[in-house]
Amino acid sequence: MKPLSYARPRTQAEAAALVRRSPDAVFIAGGTNLTDLMKLDVVTPDLLVDVQDLDLTELTHHEWGTVVGAGVTNAGLAGDIGIRRRYPLVSEAILAGASGQIRNAASIAGNLLQRTRCGYFQDVTKPCNKRSPGSGCPAIAGAHRELGVLGTSEHCVATHPSDMAVALAALDAVVRVRRATGSVSALTLDELYRLPGDRPDRDTTLEPGDLVTAVELPAPTGAPSRYRKVRDRTSFAFALVSVAAMLKVEDGVAVDVRLAYGGVAPRPWRARTAEAALLGERPTDSLITQALQAEFATARPLPDNAFKINLAASLTRAVVRDLAPAQKAGR
C-alpha cells in the first residue's frame, strides 16, 4: 500500500471537489471492500475522502416508498422493522450476504459499488482487463466456475457480487446520485451499472466525484417475495446463483412477476424476458423452464460455469413453487 492522504469533509460539495481533484482519489465509507483491495494493491488511491460526516444515514418510510441513505449500514437496513415488514426481500438478501461483522461496517453505497471477487482481478500478478484494460482475461480459459454467463464479453466475465443489489433490482429501486457538478440524478440499477464490453474497468456509469447519496424504494406492491441463494457453503459465501423473486398470483395466473438474478452477470440481472413470458400465465414448471431458456438465450456459458443456466432454472421453479401455492391456500 502506498502512502496516502485522508480528508473528512463536512459537505457533499467539498467531498466531490476533493475526489475530482485527483484521478486516484476515492470515497470511503465502511471500507470493508476498499481496504482489502488497497492491501492487495488492486486499488491504489492517493487520497481517501471519508463520507461519514455527510449526513447520509437517513432511513425514512413514506406512503410512496422508502429512502435509504447511502451511509446506512447493511446491518441497520436489514434489521430495520419498517424494511422487514415492507420489503422483506431486502432484509433477506442482505442477511444472505457477508457476515455479521461485515454487515455492521459496510454501507449501502459501498455494497452497490463493491468490486468483483474474480480471483484474477484480486491478484495483481495476473493479467486482468478490469484492473488494467488490454492486459487480457485469464479467467476465460482458466478458473471461471464462479463467473458470469450473461452480459459478459470476450474481455471480461466477472460477476457483480452483491446480494442486496439483486433484491433492489427486483424492487425497481432508484439510486440517487449527486453529480460532481452539483446536479442530482436518479438512476435505475440498469442505468447505474454498465456491461463490460471492451471497457470492463468501468463497473458503473458514475464519473469521478459523483456521490451516491441514497437509494429510493417505490411503495411496496404487497406481492409475496423470496430471496434464495445457492452457494458452496450455507453461510458467508458468495452466490453461485441467487434469485430475488416477487410473484402475485390471482385465479392461478401470475399478475405481477419480478425476477432478478445474482452470480450470473456483471450486474444484478433483471430477467425481463422471463417475466414477460410468465405474466398473465399459470406459472407451471414447464413454462418457467421455457421462460428461463428465453432469458438465457443470449448467455455465453464457459465450460465450468454452464451449470449456472440449469441452476437458475431449477432455483426459479423451486421459488415459484414456494410463492404460488401459498397464495392459492390463502384464497
Partner: peptide, 18 residues
C-alpha cells in the same frame, strides 16, 4: 473481531484514521 462503539466489526478492514 473487536467491538467498535458496541458493534462487532473486523479490525483488519478498519482504517484507524476513520
Amino acid at each position: 473481531t473487536v467491538l467498535v462503539d458496541g458493534q462487532r466489526v473486523l479490525s483488519c478492514l478498519k482504517l484507524v484514521v476513520t
